[in-house]
């Protein structure tokens, strides 16, 4: 790696790492599952690295990265099977516009959520973390136990609602 490349590599790594969470959040608004988000994020990283020399450091990295991510997501979306729950293209564009205007605030949102999580009753907190434990598949768990995914989702719905209410309230006070 030459000197120039070395510098670019640093710029890329620093910016990408700093903004990875924001990019994931942006892609999540467009794509139906986390597998899709991971897939597109990888592609996006490759493209960003390839084009890093075109990046103008006087602009915000995240804005530039989102333009690329949006394009990659759209290309991915077109390849996706028809039976997948994927937003139609006109709506996809609208969401991307909205989401690009709202890139700020992720870290405040995160810390508010953490506060709200800690305010939940212990059993509800454990339940929601269980639902978000990597590798947990609700259906498999349900089949294994002969129980109902419906009951699981119902409870999850209530807790998510509670958390969103709480985050909203915290935000209003800030």
């Amino acid at each position: 790696m030459g000197r120039r490349e070395n510098h670019e590599y640093e710029v890329f790594i620093r910016n990408f790492t700093k903004n990875e969470q924001n990019l994931r959040r942006f892609l999540r608004s467009l794509l139906p599952s986390w597998e899709d988000v991971d897939e597109v994020l990888q592609e996006t990283a490759v493209v960003l690295w390839r084009k890093i020399e075109h990046y103008d450091p006087s602009t915000e990295f995240i804005k530039w990265a989102c333009v690329v991510a949006r394009f990659e997501a759209l290309a991915y979306r077109r390849k996706m099977a028809r039976d997948r729950l994927v937003f139609r293209e006109d709506l996809f564009e609208l969401i991307a516009e909205d989401a690009q205007d709202e890139l700020e605030g992720a870290s405040l949102e995160r810390s508010n959520l953490q506060k709200c999580l800690s305010e939940l009753p212990a059993d509800q907190k454990r339940f929601v973390l269980l639902a978000y434990t990597p590798g947990v598949k609700v259906k498999e768990l349900a089949n294994q136990e002969g129980s109902s995914p419906g009951a699981f989702y119902m409870r999850l719905k209530r807790i998510r609602h509670q958390l969103l209410n709480c985050v909203e309230r915290k935000l209003q006070n800030q």
């Binding site: 969470q21 994931r24 959040r25 999540r28 608004s29 986390w34 969401i95 909205d98 989401a99 709202e102 992720a106 949102e109 995160r110 959520l113 953490q114 999580l117 454990r126 929601v128 973390l129 269980l130 639902a131 978000y132 434990t133 990597p134 947990v136 998510r160 958390l163 969103l164 985050v167 909203e168």
Partner: peptide
């Protein structure tokens, strides 16, 4: 989007 953002942050929490 707020729902999806929540989903993001919960994923980032890493589960149990």
């Amino acid at each position: 989007r707020r729902y999806l953002n929540l989903d993001c942050h919960l994923v980032a929490e890493g589960g149990l």
